[in-house]
Computed example of a mutant assay.
Amino acid sequence: MESQRCGVCMLGAQLSLIRCCIGTRTTVAEANSHLLAVTGARSVPRWNDRLARTEAQVHDVLLAAAARALTAR
Rank of each mutant, 00 (worst) to 15 (best):
M1I: 12
M1Q: 09
M1P: 05
E2Q: 13
S3C: 10
S3Q: 12
S3H: 12
S3M: 11
Q4N: 06
Q4E: 07
R5K: 11
R5T: 10
R5G: 08
R5P: 04
C6I: 06
C6E: 14
G7W: 01
G7I: 03
G7E: 00
V8A: 10
V8L: 13
C9I: 00
C9W: 03
C9F: 01
M10C: 10
G12H: 03
G12Y: 00
A13G: 12
A13K: 04
A13S: 11
A13T: 09
Q14K: 01
Q14E: 08
S16P: 01
S16L: 09
L17F: 07
I18W: 02
I18D: 00
R19E: 08
R19V: 02
C20R: 14
C20I: 02
C21E: 13
C21S: 12
I22S: 09
I22Y: 04
T24C: 08
T24N: 09
R25L: 12
R25Y: 13
T26I: 15
T27D: 15
T27L: 15
T27Q: 15
T27S: 14
E30F: 10
E30N: 15
E30M: 15
A31G: 14
A31V: 11
A31D: 14
A31E: 12
N32F: 02
S33C: 05
S33I: 00
S33M: 08
H34W: 08
H34Q: 10
H34S: 09
L35W: 10
L35Q: 05
L35E: 06
L36Q: 08
L36T: 06
L36G: 08
A37H: 12
A37Y: 11
V38Q: 07
V38A: 09
V38N: 02
T39K: 06
G40C: 06
G40H: 04
A41L: 04
A41Y: 09
R42S: 04
R42K: 04
S43Q: 00
V44T: 06
V44I: 08
V44W: 01
V44G: 03
V44Y: 00
P45K: 05
R46F: 05
R46T: 10
R46W: 05
W47L: 00
W47K: 03
N48I: 05
N48D: 01
N48W: 01
D49G: 08
D49S: 11
R50Y: 03
R50H: 05
L51P: 03
L51N: 14
A52E: 02
A52T: 01
A52D: 00
A52M: 02
R53F: 09
R53D: 06
T54H: 08
T54C: 06
T54W: 06
E55W: 08
A56N: 08
A56D: 14
Q57H: 01
Q57V: 02
V58H: 09
D60W: 09
D60K: 09
D60S: 11
V61S: 00
L62N: 05
L62Y: 06
L63G: 07
L63I: 04
A65M: 07
A65P: 12
A66T: 12
A66G: 12
A66Y: 10
A67R: 13
A67K: 11
R68P: 01
R68D: 14
A69N: 07
A69I: 03
L70E: 05
L70I: 07
T71A: 15
A72L: 02
A72T: 07
A72N: 05
R73S: 13
R73E: 14
